[in-house]
Simulated assay, not measured.
Amino acid sequence: MTKLPPGFTHELPQHLQQHNHGVFDEQKEVPVLDFDRFCCRAHGFSALIETWQDSEGPSQLTLFDTGPDSLSLARNADAMNIPVERIDRVVISHWHSDHTGGLLSFLRLRSARSINVPPSCVVDVHPDRPIARGIAPGPGYDSVICALPPDPTFAAIEKASGRVEAHAEGHCVAADTVYVSGGIPRVTEYEVGILGGMRWVEGAGKPEQRGKWIKDGLITDERYVAIDVIGKGLVIFSACSHAGIVNVVKDAVECFKRPIYMIIGGLHLAGPEFGPRIPMTVDFLSSKLKPSPMYILPMHCSGFQAKVALEAEFGEGCVPAGVGIKIDVVGDSEADKTVFPPTY
C-alpha cells in the first residue's frame, strides 16, 4: 500500500486490470479479490525483464534468476498472467540455489505451454558450476554448518528442455537490448565478498583440497544484467551483489559510459559483518557517483539497515519493491541528448 513513484504499479491494481481474479459480484457490481491467486514471496530473487527496441516492434522477454524453490515462480507467473512460453532465455546470475531453485520447474511449465513455439529455452549460465556451496558463520568463518541445496546440473537443465549456453564473458541478448556481464572486477577495498562462503571440491583442483570445503567468498561466477534506456540511462539488475554493488556500478559505467538510472536487486548488506560497508556504499551511490541513480530498489539480501540508510539519502528514490511490483521505464530520444556519462 506504500505510495510508489510514477511508473511503478502495485500487484493489486494489476489484478483488477486483468479482470480474471476472483469472481464478479453481480449484486454489488464489483469484483471480489481472490487472495489465493496473489503472488507469494520467498527468500530468493527473480525478475522478468521485457524490452523493446522501438514501440512498433515485438518485445523480448528475459527471465533473470528463478527464485529458491519449485513452487513460488510457477505460482507467481500464473498469478500475474505471464506468458511463460514467450520467455526464450533465462539468465542465471550466479550458482546459489536461492537464484536457481525454480529453474527446472519453470522449464517444465514453459515446455507444457509451448504448443506452437520452439520447446527449448536458452539457459544462460556461468560455466563454473560448483558441486556444492556451504555456509560458515563467524567469527571464524571456517566451519560449515550447512550446505545450500544443489544447483541444477547441465544435464538436468537439458532434460527439462533447456539449452545451456555457458558464458564467462560479457555479451548481449534479447535482440541486443539486454547486456549480461562477465566477471565483475573487484576494485574497492571494502567489498570483499562473503566471509563465510564455502565450496565443496571433488575430483578436480589441488590434491590437498579434494573432498573438502574450501573458502569461496568472492563468488567469482556472479554476473549482473544491464539495460540502456534511451533518455534515462542504465537499469542495473544485481541479484545479490556478492561482488559489491559499488563494484557492479563501476563496471557498468566503465562498459557503457552512461549514467545509472535505476538499481534493482539484492545489495548483500544484511548482517553484522556487512554493517561497516553500508555508509561507504550509500556515500558512493548518493555523493561520489555523478549523477546519482534516480531510483534504488533494495531487495532480497539488502537488509533493513541498508534500506533505512538509502531512504535517508534518496528519499522517495529508494523504493520498497518486491514480488508483484511492475515497473515501466519508457525511453525518450529527445531527452537522451542531455544525458551525459557519469563521473565518480
Rank of each mutant, 00 (worst) to 15 (best):
T281Q: 04
E316A: 14
P5T: 03
A226N: 06
T188Q: 13
D128K: 12
G203N: 15
A321F: 00
I230R: 09
G102C: 15
G303V: 10
D54N: 15
D176E: 14
S292F: 04
V201C: 13
G303N: 09
V84F: 03
E191I: 07
G44E: 03
G7C: 01
D216G: 04
G244P: 07
R129Y: 02
L218P: 01
L73T: 00
F274T: 01
R86V: 01
Q18L: 13
A160K: 07
C40R: 12
M299T: 11
A306F: 03
V84S: 06
G134Q: 12
F314T: 09
G22I: 01
G183P: 05
G324T: 12
V125P: 02
E189Y: 04
T153E: 10
V23S: 15
R258Q: 10
V123Q: 10
P150Q: 15
G140E: 05
E11C: 01
V91R: 03
S161A: 09
K337H: 13
D124R: 11
P279V: 08
E11F: 01
V323W: 00
V282L: 09
T2C: 01
G22L: 02
A47N: 11
I236T: 03
R75T: 10
E169K: 06
R89F: 04
V125R: 09
G134L: 13
C255L: 00
I296E: 02
P130R: 09
G324L: 07
C40F: 03
R186Y: 05
K3L: 06
A309F: 06
I92M: 14
F154D: 14
M294T: 14
D54M: 06
M280E: 00
F38D: 04
E169V: 04
T51L: 11
T177D: 13
L4V: 00
G193H: 04
G211S: 08
R86K: 12
P58M: 05
A42S: 11
G275R: 06
V117P: 00
L48W: 04
M1T: 08
E202G: 05
P6Y: 03
